[in-house]
Design a protein around this nucleic acid. Structure first.
Lengths: 358, 358
DNA sequence: TACGGTCCGGTAAGCGCTTACCGGTAAGCG
DNA sequence: CGCTTACCGGTAAGCGCTTACCGGACCGTA
């Protein structure tokens, strides 16, 4: 406040020490709460720090401590510049997860170094590698990189992937897709007595989708329901994709199964819309379920029965796993978070029998 | 790929140098493209780097170079955990701006260190201060901190604020609110001949809002229109706030002005909705305009006449300003980006006369 | 053959911090 | 009253990198 300081940013612990009349070691100790400095020493240091608006240089601390307290987070941009309607949803997911990571990180004094990757960027691994050099570890969102790419990065720093699969070198955190689908199938078959089921899939390259589809087939067989499958059921996680599946199924004159599980809520939204257009009633003629429990799910007509994934916990957990790996060289390779069946009305339950998990 | 490396992360430039059979200086030079190493030297280094999956440590580089290549970005979370419907909009703004910052940053090899702040977090300045220690500069989104808080941070690192006002120590980037409002007022008064105007304001504490309101009053007077003002016109940037204003104006039996400017598109959305409820026709009875040009603006009934702000450019510009300050100790204190009037139909233009800027 | 000029590449210092180590002072004890 | 013990706090090394500086090798020229 008083002296004309040197060129901003050149302020070091030496300046503080000089002003406080102590050694740099004392300044460092006070700042980090190490040792047991005398009250007077502490005061003098604190006063000098305040006077100078001193903040210790993160790079120097990192170098000395071997800990940057920074975690790199990488996600995929849907496309270059503009944002489409449908994109909001996945955007929101990413944000909620990142928020979870941030909450977990803050608890340990870490900050988030964020980088997004476009669909057809090149040198992605190199770019993320550079990021890795500035962080203690990396969290990679869904569908970022090939297994080989992940392995290369995992060679440099600890890596946690989300909703993927763990590799020898990287750890993974995901939600319990199997349990979610299993609960859905059982609810539909055992409680409602539906005998025929269909599954509108998500993007073919998504591990989450593959897991869900596989769980669907396995569980349906286990409870003795018929399933309708095939290329016609291929969606892509979007409402448009879901509507398409219904259109082409109907156009081909196929009889719809009694209940249709959708890969995610967006898809269910499209399916319900397309069905309504054709005069098919939900749930009287066909029961529909989603997956995710996005905010609008409860406002659909009928309110959507779905599976809630704990997105924010997912992020927080991803950080925690990474952190334990960073600080203790140990971390669970594959972590599965529980999901929750949210029964509303699109499955055929009535608002009185449905217990909305909200 | 072959040797059992030392504990991951302990890999240094010395390891690379040893494997390549050169000195650390050569490794560094090759990695940074300095000097003119022989082709053979370069090859040996590159091969060793690849073999070891080496990435130079960012902290050490930063310490040595005096440049971290990291910019801190701070924004405000609307509230703790859940996300409300209306929040999406501002969320999106933040994301688009951040995306702009990222684009600008990438060009210079910088990454984004991101931190969000809750409404009633405490020690905000301390927390951001810690962030500042890990970054070369800070970009603060709208309405984060008091001027004093900003000043304290600006004492530590270069600071750019968005949509605020510059202080002696910090720089600011914003859109040209005055011009936007001026264009709107002129269009309504001069081209359409409306003689009475109203302005539904945004949050009272928003610099953007204050600027817009002031420009509205000034310009309306300048072109000789009557204006209706007062407490009744206080909105809060939300659709609900806009609807509220209309409700209470109507409930009080006040005659509406011929045209109403809204502080932002969200507000206009609420206003149009409330008006429709009461049977007031837009634009036949009352013309409405927004501000921002959010994606839905063109899909409203009638399509909304508004002002487009170059959000992504805003972010990119903020970074560029900050960067010039970091690298050359100079940066424009106050930067104003041009906006664009987007004439659609809610002002009374017809789709043929309106030239949609999309 | 000898000498000057180029060009590479190695050696070492230093970036700002943390902390092991050690020395000095004061209090406790015999 | 002198010696041990404890407690603070200072000195200096070292974290992994960049780069100024310098020396050696090789070329060209006389």
């Amino acid at each position: 406040m008083a002296e004309p300081k040197k060129a901003k940013g050149t302020l070091t612990i030496y300046d503080v020490a000089k002003l406080a009349g102590v050694s740099i070691a004392s300044v460092s100790r006070v700042l980090n709460g190490q040792g047991t400095p005398r009250a007077e020493t502490r005061d003098r240091v604190m006063r000098a720090v305040r006077e100078l608006s001193f903040v210790p240089d993160g790079a120097a601390r990192a170098l000395s401590n071997g800990l940057k307290e920074v975690v790199g987070v990488v996600f995929r941009r849907e496309n270059g510049e503009t944002y489409l309607e449908g994109e909001d949803e996945s955007f929101l997911f990413i944000d909620v997860i990142n928020r979870g990571i941030e909450v977990g990180a803050r608890r340990r004094g870490f900050d988030l170094l964020i980088s997004s990757v476009g669909f057809n960027d090149d040198n992605v691994v190199e770019r993320i590698g550079a990021l890795a050099g500035k962080a203690d570890g990396l969290i990679l969102h869904d569908r970022m990189l090939s297994a080989a790419g992940i392995a290369r990065l995992a060679d440099m720093v600890p890596v946690v992937t989300l909703a993927g699969t763990s590799t020898p070198a990287s750890m993974n955190v995901r939600c319990d897709n199997e349990a979610g689908i299993r609960d859905l199938v059982r609810h539909l078959v055992i409680e409602h007595g539906y005998r025929s089921l269909g599954y509108v899939s998500g993007r073919a390259d998504s591990p989450d989708n593959r897991t869900r589809q596989h769980a669907f087939e396995t569980e349906a067989v286990a409870v003795g329901a018929e399933i309708d499958t095939g290329q016609a059921w291929q969606g892509n996680y979007s409402a448009a994709g879901g509507a398409n599946v219904v259109e082409s199924l109907l156009a081909a004159g196929r009889k719809l199964p009694r209940a249709i599980l959708c890969a995610n809520d967006q898809t269910a939204l499209g399916v319900i819309h397309a069905l309504a257009q054709r005069g098919v009633r939900v749930p009287q003629d066909v029961a529909i379920t989603g997956f995710d429990d996005v905010p609008v799910a409860r406002h659909l007509h009928p309110p959507l029965t779905t599976v809630r994934q704990p997105m924010q916990e997912l992020g927080a957990m991803a950080f925690e796993i990474l952190y334990s790996r960073i600080s203790a060289a140990a971390g669970k390779a594959d972590t599965v978070l529980p999901v929750e069946l949210v029964v509303r009305e699109s499955c055929g339950c009535t608002s009185s029998s449905a217990k909305d998990g909200a």
